[in-house]
């Protein structure tokens, strides 16, 4: 009690459906198919489905996908995350 910890000490707003779907796809990458996604009963929105199909990591981040799931998704599809999500190594020293 009495600690000042801010937002990270509170339950954050999550995109639970998107996170669940990313987790499924990471474990079974063949799910990432337009027809398949239409049949598995997800409640993820159409724009988010498009981002998944396009492997749009920055877009998914903008939809509050969990950072660790974004990293797993990148790994599953052999996407180097730093160029699309962060800084290039030569810009990275602070």
């Amino acid at each position: 009690m009495g600690d000042r910890h801010g937002d990270r000490a509170a339950f954050r707003t999550m995109n639970l459906e998107l996170d669940r779907l990313i987790r499924r796809i990471v474990r079974e990458p063949t799910l990432l198919d337009e027809v398949t996604l239409a049949t598995i009963g997800t409640r993820v929105s159409e724009p988010e489905i498009r981002m998944l199909l396009d492997k749009d990591l920055a877009g998914l981040r903008g939809r509050d996908a969990h950072p660790l799931l974004l990293m797993q998704f990148a790994g599953a599809f052999r996407i180097e995350p730093m160029p699309v999500l962060g800084r290039q190594p030569d810009q990275s020293q602070s």
Partner: peptide
């Protein structure tokens, strides 16, 4: 280290 954020790649050595 920053994971999957726009700062990914930064290191705060200080």
């Amino acid at each position: 280290h920053w994971v999957a954020t726009p700062e990914m790649g930064d290191i705060n050595a200080d």
